[in-house]
């Protein structure tokens, strides 16, 4: 409270008044402070408004099937965004999620002859393997995460494209399990993939809030040097984060291939940038240390509903992309304004 020091010489009565004023201000924060402390509420509000606007253009969203389709489509996006959330909390980013997902889905379909469990294990193994390489490079060799994962995406694209004419050639039957989970209906408007999504959400939200690893992830994102000095093995945390990210990417890829019933070299690539956008809209800072998965869930839902609205607006594909970009920018901008997590200019 250095603000108080200049008037320290004044009379006791005056300083008491000043202190009382400060206390009053802290006790009754303005609406902005209150909103900034509850970003999830703001996001939920945005989602509700957006949903209402979309219903006005497309009343099928009020039906059981409409709700189901939103949840079904939001699920893979939210899972990819879970990868991004973990990485961004440590100040990184994972641009290899889409290729990891494609690769994992391809492996699962290609190895489906060996039985579902082995095929699934191999697909998840792909995710863990890719994540481990990313994690070691970022954690131990200090490679910039953006470059590391761009490079990894390039490597995977080469491996899958070449593999298609070699060891990955042959049958590509999407596993029955994957198909059921990816496109089935649980009950009413709830698709089966919601089970996986709920599981992941619970683990991430609770894990980030109260597990040791979760707290250390925030700490590493906030100040890596302080973490190292405090005895945290930063490289192990980063390794764990990127392995989890790879694993989540593989799960997302399987869910997507279950929904579409197909596999392809680049089938989830259009999810890559939206997954980053969903995380940013959800309030996780790309600079690390702030945010969480709750916001990301809402971010993924907002983007899915937004996509639906733009599809219904009967504008050309061109305007849809322009609007999408502008809205993502506007949401990110207002978020930064609201919460004050602004990148500081200069020494200011």
């Amino acid at each position: 409270m250095s603000d108080v020091t200049p008037i320290a010489a004044a009379t006791t009565e005056e300083s008491t008044q000043v202190v009382a004023e400060i206390v009053r201000e802290t006790v009754r924060p303005g609406w902005r402070t209150r909103l900034a402390e509850q970003p999830a509420l703001v996001l939920a509000g945005v989602l509700v408004v957006l949903y209402a606007v979309t219903v006005w253009k497309d009343d099928s969203l009020l039906t059981v099937n409409g709700v189901r389709s939103i949840l079904l489509l939001a699920c893979p996006l939210a899972v990819f965004a879970a990868s991004q959330t973990l990485c961004m909390l440590t100040g990184g980013v994972d641009l290899s999620v889409a290729m990891t997902a494609n690769f994992a889905a391809y492996v699962a379909a290609n190895q489906s002859g060996r039985g579902p469990w082995i095929a699934l294990a191999m697909a998840l193994g792909v995710g863990v393997g890719v994540g481990a390489v990313n994690g070691l490079a970022v954690g131990v060799f200090k490679v910039n995460p953006l470059i590391m994962t761009i490079g990894m995406a390039s490597v995977l694209l080469g491996v899958v494209t070449v593999g298609l004419r070699g060891w990955l050639a042959g049958s590509t039957d999407v596993l029955d399990v994957v198909r059921t989970v990816g496109s089935g209906t649980l009950i009413g408007p709830l698709p089966t993939n919601l089970l996986v999504w709920t599981g992941i959400s619970l683990v991430l939200v609770l894990g980030l809030r109260s597990s040791g690893l979760g707290r250390v992830i925030y700490a590493v994102g906030d100040n890596q040097i302080a973490c190292r000095l405090a005895g945290v093995r930063v490289w192990q945390v980063l390794l764990a984060v990127y392995v989890l990210s790879g694993l989540l990417a593989a799960i997302g890829g399987l869910l997507f291939s279950g929904t579409t019933g197909s596999v392809g070299v680049d089938q989830t690539n259009s999810y890559l940038l939206p997954s980053v956008a969903a995380t940013v809209i959800g309030g996780t800072s790309i600079l690390g240390g702030t945010g969480g998965y709750t916001g990301t869930i809402l971010g993924a839902l907002i983007l899915t509903v937004l996509n639906r609205l733009l599809l219904r607006l009967e504008v050309s594909e061109a305007f849809r992309q322009i609007l999408y970009g502008l809205i993502v920018l506007a949401l990110a901008w207002s978020y930064v304004r609201l919460t004050g997590q602004k990148v500081r200019e200069g020494g200011g």
Binding site: V93, L146, L273, V276, A277, V280, I286, Q321, I322, Y324, G325, L326, V328, L329, A332
Partner: peptide, 10 residues
């Protein structure tokens, strides 16, 4: 990164 990402859509 975020601004240019959005700009790439636009």
């Amino acid at each position: 990164i975020i601004v240019t990402l959005a700009a790439s859509f636009v």
